[in-house]
């Protein structure tokens, strides 16, 4: 439908990004901008937090910033 969002914040989408390369919370938020998903800021934060807790990604510091990543 024309009104549907072009990006969906799903566990599978997050998993694909984190397998590709390590990302900070800010990097992830950029991939799921509210204007693209149609979610509110609060929904985005809550859903992304739940997904990250489920995925339980590896973490590493790059340039003093914590990055999440997954291996296949």
């Amino acid at each position: 439908t024309p009104s549907s969002s072009d990006v969906q914040l799903t566990e599978e989408a997050v998993r694909r990004y984190l397998i590709r390369k390590p990302m900070t919370t800010k990097d992830l938020l950029k991939k799921f901008q509210t204007k693209r998903t149609g979610l509110s800021s609060e929904q985005t934060v809550n859903v992304l937090a739940q997904i990250l807790k489920r995925l339980n990604p590896e973490r590493k510091n790059v340039n003093d910033k914590m990055h999440f990543y997954l291996t296949e």
């Binding site: 919370t25 800010k26 800021s41 609060e42 937090a49």
Partner: peptide
């Protein structure tokens, strides 16, 4: 805006605090 992005990142990190 970037300040909203910063606020969201801070909120997300707070949500993940125990986990991180």
């Amino acid at each position: 805006s970037s300040s909203e992005a910063d606020e969201m990142a801070a909120a997300l990190e707070a949500e993940l605090n125990d986990f991180m």
